[in-house]
Design a protein around this nucleic acid. Structure first.
Lengths: 335, 335
DNA sequence: TCATCCAACGTAAACGTTTACGTAAAAGAG
DNA sequence: CTCTTTTACGTAAACGTTTACGTTGGATGA
C-alpha cells in the first residue's frame, strides 16, 4: 500500500493538516516544520492521492477528447497538440473514439461524466443536440476542434475552410489553369464538405470562369474516395488540367489512380490537396497542399479549454487559425 | 451540482446503503425498492461519482499508455487497439507522450501514480531501470508493447522481429534476387534495430549467399533515414536489385529517392518494407511489406493487462503475434 | 503588567461512495 | 405458537484529502 498523508504526519510528528498545508504551500507553518515534513515525504517517497484530492476539490485535472475515429491521420497531430498543451498545464487527457456512432458517443460521455473530468474537446464531428444537452448538464466547458456548431454557442478552433479552399483554387488559377476539377468530400457535411466546395466555386466565379460541372462528390475524405473520384473525374471531364482535392487522403487516391493509369502528375494534371498531413511530403511526387496547422490547432483547443476552466466563463473567443499553401511538386505552371 | 447518492436515497425514501446496493446489484433489497430506486435515479438523471468510487475501491478503471512520440504512424493503430479493448472492458485510457525523454517519462509516471491508474502499457521504447523500479513501487501491472525487456520480467506483446526480417529477405530471395541490400534502423537498438539486421543476415547466409556489406545503418526509422539511406546504398552498391527497408517510413524515403533520381520501382529495384502502416497501400506504387498486426497488438496488450488485473498475477504469458507478408507492387520477380 | 494580536499549529467535518455490522420484521421449522 | 433463520433494510466507519474553526504560545503595544 502506498503511504498516505497520515503516515507522513505521524512520522513528522505533526498533524495531517500541517502536511497538507506544506504540500499545497498554504500559509500556516514554520520553516522548520516545512523542512521536517519535506524530509519525511522524501524518505517515504510519499505522493499525494489525486483521487482523494479530486473528490474534495471537484477537479480531476483530466480532460476528455472525443474523436470520431483513431485511424484518420489527422487525429495523431491533433492529439499530439492537445496532449502537449494539457500536460504543460498539469492535466492528463483521456482519449475516446466514438466511431462516429451516436450511441457510443453517449456512452463515452456518460463515462466521462462519471469520471468527473474537467472539460471536453470534441473533434471533427458534428455536435448533435443529444451530445450538447448532455454536456451542458455535465456543467463543464467544451471546445470544438476542426468543427463548429451552428445551433449551439460552443467555442471552436478551425481554419476557415471556405477561405482555404478559395486559396487553393486561386493558387491553381494563378498557375494558369483554367479547366479545374474538384474531388470533394461529402457535400452534405456542413463543416468540412460544403465550405470547401463553396470556396472552390467562388474562386472560379471570381476569376470569371464559367462553372462547368467539374465536381465529384464523394461520401467521405478517404483514400478510396480519391481513387474513385479521380476515375470518375477523368472519365467525365478529361480536358481538365488541375484538380483540387478536398483532403490529402483524397489527393493520395487521385495520385494513385493517376499512377495506375499512366497519367503523369504534374505533367498531365496538377493536384493540390488539403490538410498537410505529415505524409504529404512523403508522397510521390511530394504533395502540394493547403495546410492546416494541425498540432497548433490541438494546442489552441486545449488552451481555450483551460482558459475557460480558469476564468469560469462558459464561453471564449473562437479561433480561426491561418492556413498556408505548401508548394511542393504536384502543381505545375500551365502555359 | 450533480446529484449524489444522498439525493437519490432521500427522494426514494431509503438509506444510501440501499441505493448503493441496487447500484452494484448486491443482495439485500426487495424488488419493490429496486424499482423505486431505479425510477428515482432515472428521474434525477443521477450518475455515480467514479472519483468517490475510486477512492474507496482503490480502482480507477483507467490505464495509462506511454508512447515515445505521438507523431509516428504506428501509434495511431496501437492506440486504436488499446482504446477499443480497454473501453470494451470498462476502462479509460490516458495517453502520455514522453518524447523518449527520461525526465519527462518519470514525470509522467509520477502523474499516473498520483492518479492511481490501474495499469500501464509501455510502448515502443526501452524500459529503463529507473522506469521499471518506479512502476514496481507503484504496485500495478504493466505490459510492454512492441518492445521487450531483457533485464526485467515484464510481459510483452511483439512480433518476432528477427523472424519477420528473415521472412522478408527470404521473400526477396524467392523472387530470384541475389544482390540484396538493407536500409536498417539503428543497429544499437536491441529491440527493433538489431533483430531485423540479424534476420536479414541470417536469411542471406541460409541461402548460401556471400554477405557483401550491403547494409546501411541509419539513426532511426524515419522517412529522412530512408531518403539518406537509399542515396548511400545506391552510391555504395549500385548493382543490387532488391532492398529490405527496416520500416515502412524508410521504404517511403527510399521510394521517394528513387522517384527523384529516375530509379524505377520495381523495374530497376524491388523494395519490401516493414510495418504495414495504413498508408503502405497508398504508396506509389503500393508498398509490399511485412506487416505487423498493429491494432491486434494494441488489443492484445490491453487484454493482457486486464488479465493481470483480474487475476492479480504480476505476470502473464508473452505473446508473439504472427507477421504476414503483404504482396503489393514494389517487388518484382528477378529473371 | 496586561490586553491584544498573530503565527503556528491541531481537530474535525466534509467530499461521495462502499461495506461491515446491527436490527427489526417476515418466513420457516417444529 | 414459539424459536430460529432469513430477508431487507439502516447506521456508521472508512477511503485520503482539504479546510473552516478553535486553540495555543509568544510577540507586541500601551
Amino acid at each position: 500500500m502506498a503511504y498516505t498523508i497520515k503516515d507522513v504526519a505521524k512520522k513528522a510528528g505533526v498533524s495531517i493538516a500541517t502536511v497538507s498545508r506544506v504540500l499545497n504551500n498554504q500559509p500556516g507553518f514554520s520553516e522548520k516544520t516545512k523542512q521536517k515534513v519535506q524530509q519525511v515525504i522524501e524518505e517515504l517517497g510519499y505522493e499525494p492521492n489525486a483521487v482523494a484530492r479530486g473528490l474534495i476539490n471537484n477537479k480531476t485535472h483530466t480532460i476528455g477528447v472525443l474523436f470520431p475515429e483513431l485511424s484518420s491521420m489527422l487525429v495523431t497531430d491533433f492529439l499530439n497538440g492537445i496532449e502537449t498543451m494539457a500536460h504543460e498545464l498539469g492535466s492528463s487527457v483521456i482519449v475516446c473514439h466514438t466511431e462516429a456512432d451516436g450511441e457510443k458517443t453517449m456512452k463515452y460521455l456518460q463515462l466521462l461524466n462519471e469520471k468527473r473530468i474537467d472539460g471536453i474537446i470534441f473533434v471533427s464531428a458534428i455536435l448533435k443536440e443529444e451530445y450538447y444537452n448532455y454536456i451542458r448538464k455535465m456543467g463543464i466547458p467544451m471546445v470544438l476542434l476542426s468543427t463548429e456548431s451552428y445551433a449551439y454557442p460552443v467555442p471552436y478552433v478551425k481554419v476557415n475552410d471556405q477561405h482555404a479552399a478559395y486559396s487553393a483554387t486561386k493558387y491553381l488559377l494563378n498557375k494558369g489553369h483554367k479547366k479545374i476539377g474538384m474531388i470533394s468530400g461529402n457535400k452534405d457535411d456542413l463543416i468540412a464538405g460544403k465550405p470547401r466546395i463553396m470556396g472552390f466555386k467562388m474562386a472560379l466565379k471570381d476569376s470569371g470562369i464559367a462553372f462547368t460541372d467539374n465536381i465529384i462528390y464523394s461520401k467521405g475524405f478517404s483514400f478510396q474516395d480519391g481513387l474513385d473520384g479521380m476515375e470518375k473525374l477523368m472519365k467525365q471531364s478529361s480536358e481538365i488540367s488541375a484538380i483540387f482535392a478536398a483532403s490529402d487522403e483524397i489527393a493520395f487516391g487521385a495520385l494513385s489512380f493517376a499512377y495506375q493509369h499512366g497519367i503523369k502528375i504534374p505533367d498531365d494534371v496538377s493536384i493540390i490537396g488539403y490538410d498537410n498531413l505529415s505524409i504529404a511530403e512523403m508522397a510521390i511526387p511530394p504533395l502540394t497542399t493547403v495546410g492546416q496547422p494541425l498540432i497548433k490547432m490541438g494546442k489552441t483547443a486545449a488552451s481555450m479549454l483551460f482558459e475557460m476552466l480558469e476564468s469560469g466563463n462558459v464561453f471564449v473567443e473562437n479561433r480561426i487559425l491561418p492556413h498556408e499553401i505548401l508548394e511542393r511538386e504536384t502543381v505545375r505552371e500551365k502555359r
